[in-house]
């Protein structure tokens, strides 16, 4: 009797793979728009031509009034108002500037200082010619060469911040994303990590603050930005990276600003999201290997048993 099993196996595998290819890679390729990564180059923004002076930058930051809205905890400057009040005034709580030099691209920071709506790619929403001003006031210069002044400010911010390699996933996420997006699974709200309260009324009071903050945010953004707890599972990493890089590429006209993170910061943001929505991925890898070894041994024993039993049958 001719053994037909190899050919049967090939037929079964062939039809299974064709089906898999059509309903997974092929169908998803058709359904989802492909967006090429810009590799966080921010090619549309002008390069920094001047080299900045840290001491001048420090003076400029104070004199230009940045700290009227932004805190700079590391330099001993607390937030002028709490997050809820700040959101009522500006729509969203302005970020602390302590680490921004490490988190965001230099070109982006420079452009942001001069023309926020342009750097953030929200000019469709804030059109200065129609009097729709972005809540962040542009820096018009202190009388000298504005490009030099901006370069000095960026140099100061970079000097103040930790080295980019010391940026943690939480630092990256909280500053770049966390003032609009909550992450329930990490206990993160837009006004910070929710502490554990001894008394329920304190906990409720905190929740009310979050709700008030979210009300301002809704008015500012048009809708409440989604909780990102399981976004690492609901979106592909490629989508997330290209979306963070430039939301307009995926969703033209969205109110979400381009946040201007560096490639490293974006990777840290993703790491934070993996911790939130794919917490057990390391365990999955290691357990996976052990299970595979076990199953392969099982299969070998099963094969040997079959050989032994069938020896007498032919």
């Amino acid at each position: 009797m001719k053994n037909k099993e190899p050919i049967i196996l090939i037929v079964v595998i062939f039809f299974s793979l064709v089906t898999y290819y059509l309903v997974e890679p092929f169908a998803h390729g058709v359904m989802h728009k492909h967006v090429d990564s810009e590799n966080f180059q921010y090619a549309d923004l002008p390069a920094l031509t001047k080299s900045g002076n840290v001491a001048n930058g420090e003076e400029l930051i104070i004199n230009a009034g940045c700290t009227g809205c932004h805190s700079m905890e590391k330099a001993g400057m607390p937030a002028p108002m709490d997050a809820v009040t700040a959101a009522q005034s500006y729509g969203v709580n302005p970020p602390d500037l302590s680490e921004v030099g490490a988190l965001y691209d230099d070109k982006f920071l420079a452009d942001l200082i001069k023309n926020p709506a342009h750097a953030l790619k929200v000019e469709h929403k804030f059109d200065a010619s129609k009097g729709e001003m972005h809540p962040m006031v542009p820096f018009y210069g202190m009388g000298g060469d504005i490009d030099q002044e901006v370069a000095d400010m960026v140099a100061y911010l970079k000097n103040l911040a930790v080295s980019p390699s010391d940026v943690t996933p939480a630092m990256a996420f909280e500053n770049a994303c966390g003032r609009c997006h909550a992450v329930e699974y990490e206990n993160w709200t837009q006004i910070g990590t929710k502490p554990s309260f001894k008394h329920e009324k304190d906990s409720l009071a905190f929740d009310i603050q979050v709700l008030e903050y979210e009300d301002s945010l809704k008015k500012y953004m048009g809708k409440l930005p989604p909780d990102l707890s399981s976004y690492i599972r609901s979106r592909s990493e490629d989508f997330l990276i290209t979306f963070i890089e430039n939301p307009q590429n995926h969703l033209a006209g969205t109110a979400m600003p381009r946040v201007g993170v560096t490639a490293d910061t974006a990777e840290k943001v993703l790491e934070y999201m993996r911790d939130a929505g794919d917490t057990k991925r390391h365990e999955r890898e290691s357990i996976g290997k052990v299970v595979m070894i076990y199953i392969v041994i099982f299969a070998i024993f099963a094969f040997l048993w079959k050989k032994q039993v069938w020896r007498d049958l032919h």
Binding site: I295, F298, A299, I300, F301, A302, F303, W305, K306, Q308, V309, W310
Partner: peptide, 8 residues
Amino acid sequence: SKDMMVVG
């Protein structure tokens, strides 16, 4: 015994 081999 063959069932188990395929199952493996």
